[in-house]
């Protein structure tokens, strides 16, 4: 399927406006793009872990979702959609449902990397025919920017505040895409918001239309938590990719594929500098932290290249 941008953008909008996500939210751009990958004739049930997206998109009685939607709790989006998907087969078997349904669930990094990891792991391992999309904004934004295991190293968050004795979060972010890929499921993709959204759109399409479990990890910047001007989101995403902080890759049936390799890898400072959460790294006394940061990005990039070269 060749990507025809005009045709893709002419597909029906499945996330209605009127939701209460912040101005400039990356999460809803991700949601719109993923849902656009559904065939218009297919129906869908959307699941959602508790988080910004949930409290803002279905604030009673207003749902922003054109499709059926279920939110259960914070830590169980994977198992909740497992139940919906299983019900579909049970009812289809009995001839009670004629239409084709697809199952997509969204969770932030809190609901996915952390509190919902067990439920996600179970849903992936059982290979339910659903797509779990993590809109990863790298902290618990809904409760006010607390660190998560997805928070990048040295980020200033409200539970890893920068101070006299602190330079922000001390740990590296968890590599969730690898963890899920190691469940040996049919499809894993990592993406972010780039240009026409071709990368994310095509990955979403593959994820939705590959039978079995699929996982998408989508870096979805949060202007409030990351502290940049709302208008700059596309620049930030591009820098994440060009610095190899957030590589674009997919794992199809266990085969690692690198989707984009920058011609000239940019230094990590370029990604960190526009974001207020990393402001402290640019003080002269913290120069060494930037060196360490670059080493970490390089190490992970090399590791990815190795996996993709095999």
């Amino acid at each position: 399927m060749a990507f025809n941008f005009k045709e893709v953008m002419s597909k029906p909008e499945r996330l209605a406006p009127g939701h209460r996500m912040c101005a400039g939210c990356g999460g809803t751009i991700t949601v719109r793009t993923v849902l656009r990958a559904l065939k218009p004739e297919d129906k869908a049930v959307i699941g959602n872990a508790t988080g910004c997206l949930e409290v803002s998109s279905f604030m009673y009685p207003y749902t922003a979702w054109e499709d059926s939607y279920i939110h259960n709790a914070f830590e169980n989006a994977g198992s909740t959609l497992s139940g919906v998907e299983t019900a579909y087969y049970a009812l289809k078997k009995k001839g009670k449902i004629k239409d084709n349904y697809k199952f997509i669930t969204f969770g932030g990094d809190g609901g996915t990397y952390d509190i919902g990891l067990q439920s996600l792991s179970g849903a992936m391992e059982r290979n339910h025919d659903l797509v779990y999309v993590c809109y990863d904004n790298g902290a618990y934004m809904n409760t006010g920017i607390q660190r998560s295991s997805a928070t990048p190293m040295y980020a200033d968050t409200t539970t890893t505040p920068v101070g006299k004795n602190s330079v922000g979060k001390m740990q590296n972010r968890k590599d969730l895409a690898s963890i899920i890929a190691n469940h040996d499921i049919p499809y894993v993709g990592q993406s972010t918001l780039i240009g026409t959204m071709k990368d994310l759109y095509e990955k979403a399409e593959r994820a939705i239309y590959t039978p079995g479990a699929a996982f998408l990890n989508v870096m979805s910047p949060c202007p409030r938590g990351w502290r940049y001007e709302t208008a700059d989101i596309m620049k930030i995403c591009k820098l994440a990719v060009e610095t190899c902080y957030w590589p674009l890759f997919e794992v199809i049936e266990g085969r690692w594929i690198l989707n984009y390799e920058p011609k000239k890898k940019l230094p990590i400072e370029d990604f960190l500098r526009p974001q207020g959460r990393f402001k402290h790294l640019f003080k002269p006394e913290n120069e060494e932290l930037l060196v360490k940061y670059q080493e970490e990005v390089d190490r992970r990039w090399e590791e990815l290249l190795y996996k993709c070269a095999r």
Binding site: L81, G83, A87
Partner: peptide
């Protein structure tokens, strides 16, 4: 559904019930 915990058994039952099962 041979779930990985009781939290998930109730969650999956809830999803299935909401789905119409």
């Amino acid at each position: 559904i041979p779930v990985e915990s009781e939290h998930s058994s109730m969650s999956a039952a809830l999803g299935a019930s909401a789905a119409g099962a």
